[in-house]
Design a protein around this nucleic acid. Structure first.
Lengths: 196, 196
DNA sequence: GTCTATATACTGATAGAC
DNA sequence: GTCTATCAGTATATAGAC
């Protein structure tokens, strides 16, 4: 059936979110205006307010969505079994998942300070949930005797920081394939926590 | 001798830089106005333009100054001798130096995208210089046979990313002392690159 | 060396026409 | 569902008084 002229059958909302994700990642939340996002979508600024109550909520929903996807995807990882195998699965999953969403990862770290306190607390809680997953693997491996980790909390943060580093330099058309990047990092992760 | 009323004997420049560093780190370059910096210093916005030609140059000079200090401080590290000892010296130095300047470190990573292309290229060059220093240690250790590093470039980036992670959570009044943080990370760094 | 005043432009968000 | 028009506020940067 014929639609109202100018109507876009509800695709403007997702397009707004995609444009915001891209522009926030490239220029930063504070540097991107609602007008600029609207221009990227191809509408006027006022039209965006049918899809978000305000700019802050738009940022928050992008970060929340990213964290929820991360936590959901993590569910596919083994939750029991030898810690060494679980650590390898986690390492490869983390690299792959994050390389597939460079923009969401970027703003999830860079724009935390631009979240209002309540929103910040929600995202921080989700992040801690994810970190705890890795910490549990390390603690189990320590108990098994295959890992020697003096402080599982700090070790988990250190490993995640190391793996996140990949996002700052990896290019799909670069010198190394994804498989090679995974292999190099799994080698370092494995050795870093290995028992002597 | 009596000075002009309102004059501050050249301290406004440094105070502007200190205020900008603090505010940029806390709220982001784009979110901080020259008026806000001026208010922090205790002058009117127009007065700042005696000390920087514009806001962009102010950001650039903060980042450039930080990188120059980092490269200068690195000169105190041993440039020859056993790679293992050099790696330990580098690891402890890196953690200490960066924990002493959390704000400069933060904006050096977060505000790169807000640098104009020429300014960005300068900072990137300085950063690569620093990374090469670590890469050289890893390559020397590989040649000595004490390290087993499949890709020294990637390993250097991975180790720096891991060490930088400390800045995201360390608090001087927290659970761990600086010495403990250094020890935990040196343990992981050492093992991560160790020969089997 | 810092002030006030100002130019020029942009900001987030809203109201109401179509 | 999107448009135009608009409000009230803020931005960077400059000019000239003191």
């Amino acid at each position: 059936m014929a639609r109202t002229a100018g109507s876009h059958a509800g695709v403007t909302g997702p397009r707004m979110r995609a444009a915001a994700l891209k522009l926030f990642a490239r220029h930063g939340y504070a540097a991107v205006s609602m007008r600029r996002i609207a221009a990227e979508v191809g509408v006027q600024a006022g039209a965006l307010y049918s899809y978000t109550p305000d700019k802050q909520t738009l940022l928050f929903s992008l970060l929340e969505n990213h964290m929820e996807e991360l936590l959901a995807a993590r569910m596919a990882l083994p939750a029991s079994g030898p810690a060494l195998a679980r650590l390898e699965a986690f390492t490869r999953f983390h690299i792959r998942f994050h390389l597939e969403r460079p923009e969401a990862v970027f703003i999830s770290y860079m724009e935390l300070r631009n979240l209002e306190p309540e929103n910040f607390a929600v995202i921080e809680g989700l992040r801690r949930d994810y970190e705890t997953f890795l910490e549990t693997i390390l603690r189990d491996g320590d108990a098994e005797g295959v890992f020697a980790v003096p402080d599982t909390k700090i070790a988990a943060l250190a490993l995640i920081a190391m793996l996140n580093g990949v996002n700052t330099w990896y290019r799909a058309d670069g010198r190394l394939s994804l498989a090679e990047v995974e292999a190099i990092h799994w080698d370092m992760v494995r050795k870093a926590v290995a028992a002597a």
